[in-house]
Design a protein around this nucleic acid. Structure first.
Lengths: 242, 242
DNA sequence: TCAAAAGTGTTGGCATTACACCCATGA
DNA sequence: TCATGGGTGTAATGCCAACACTTTTGA
């Protein structure tokens, strides 16, 4: 009898595919594997994360990062990429595994071991409406509400990782448009690191790195025009940035 | 019928507890969650890893890192700690999550998503004989044979992580006995980083850090006696070491 | 003409590197 | 006495942080 219930739950999982299990089945015999994705972008000069409103279960109504069960045929990275492209128009620029959370009770509905990813997208892109969630929003990372499950910890991990990587990789390119002014670049760094940087030192360092190509165009505005640059290489690299 | 087989497999899993699933069941509906632990020590001046010989399945006879399925009641960390203390006498000094591997096909027996951990132990301690594996050995990390599954990648990840952490944490204490000479400490760093360090600069830096307490005792040998030191704090800390 | 952002060099301090000789011991 | 590792200081270099004024534009 317990076995029959377990089998029923298993079939239901297969059908619902990426959805998290609906209720803790007393017959669950081993943890489910899932992914959760922290999708970050810069919007209106702020670092924002894509969150979805949980539709069912004890956490209904709370915000959480989008996620779902890992399918039999796909790798973890594929599962994360699937979540990413289901939520955003473009596939996203960058995706990296963060860490894995597996405390019993982290998800009240079932025993789920979830691998967290973080992703960068250039501009907050179309967000596909989804019947899976009650709502979707881009919220400022520095003023997130309490999130469902253990997603507060995931948010912290994502921000920590991003901060660390900004200083020794060229990942920022994933948060900027193709052409940008040095001031834009600096602003992204300051917003994410949470501290001011010296403009002269910053420009010296960045330009000396040789990662940027100066364009012939300028950006005009109500101020002195700014020279525009683009990243010579738009792919992830280890580089001393700060 | 498929459902019945699935339930049977699930019950079998619960019974075998930590053992990996024996054969890919055609009815497996979602991936299993597992942990693998890279247990490292310094022995005879070399960095060594604990490996076990796979007893069954297509990889039988090959070496792999010890691991097993995550139980319903335990966290990932607990599962890793359980593997660690099942293999070594002392619980081990340090345990940290590395990353998670989940490619389909990484384990030919079943679909397994495995979270890798790395652990440091002070001296290669008793290794509990286990019916689970055909053999157990400490092998030099720099000359590992080809490992089973995707454990080559896990080994690389563990070594990379350890190298990185040595320079900005005090984790070395986990690889050293309570009292040691500065030469010992330097040797550990050189062995793991794979390069020579200048002795005078090394001593200056380490002693200036204030992390070590000089003991009144000396170590005698066929050479000039060496002053002995101990770490003032034997717990993981972020500290600039090199 | 004003407000607002863009652009530009120099200096001092600190940290890192490179480097060579004497010492104490057991065999 | 010899082989082996233990112990020590200085000088040159490079890196980073601090710092203020002029320029260009649109409103």
């Amino acid at each position: 009898m317990r076995a029959a219930a377990g089998a029923r739950a298993a079939r239901a999982d297969r059908r619902r595919s990426t959805a998290a299990p609906r209720a803790a089945s007393p017959t669950q015999t081993h943890p489910y594997a899932a992914v959760d994705v922290v999708i970050l972008t810069i919007d209106a000069g702020e670092l924002k994360a894509l969150v979805v409103q949980v539709r069912e279960g004890p956490c209904a109504g709370q915000w959480a990062f989008p996620g779902g069960l890992v399918q039999m045929h796909e790798s973890l990275d594929d599962a994360a990429r699937r979540e990413l492209s289901a939520r955003t128009g473009l596939g996203g620029i960058y995706l990296e595994q963060l860490c894995t959370f597996g405390d019993p009770g982290r998800d009240p509905r079932a025993r789920v071991v979830s691998t967290a990813y973080f992703a960068l997208v250039a501009a907050k892109d179309m967000v596909a409406a989804s019947s899976k969630y009650a709502g979707v929003a881009w919220l400022p990372v520095h003023a997130l509400p309490r999130l469902a499950y253990d997603h507060d910890a995931i948010a912290r991990a994502a921000l920590d990782r991003l901060r660390a990587k900004l200083s020794y990789t060229n990942l920022v390119y994933g948060l900027l448009p193709d052409a940008f002014a040095l001031g834009d670049l600096q602003e992204v760094y300051e917003k994410i690191l949470g501290r001011r940087l010296d403009r002269r030192n910053f420009r010296k360092k960045i330009l000396a790195s040789g990662l940027l190509r100066r364009l012939r165009t300028q950006r005009r505005g109500p101020h002195r025009p700014a020279a525009l640059y683009r990243f010579a290489q738009r792919r992830p690299m280890m580089v001393e940035m700060l």
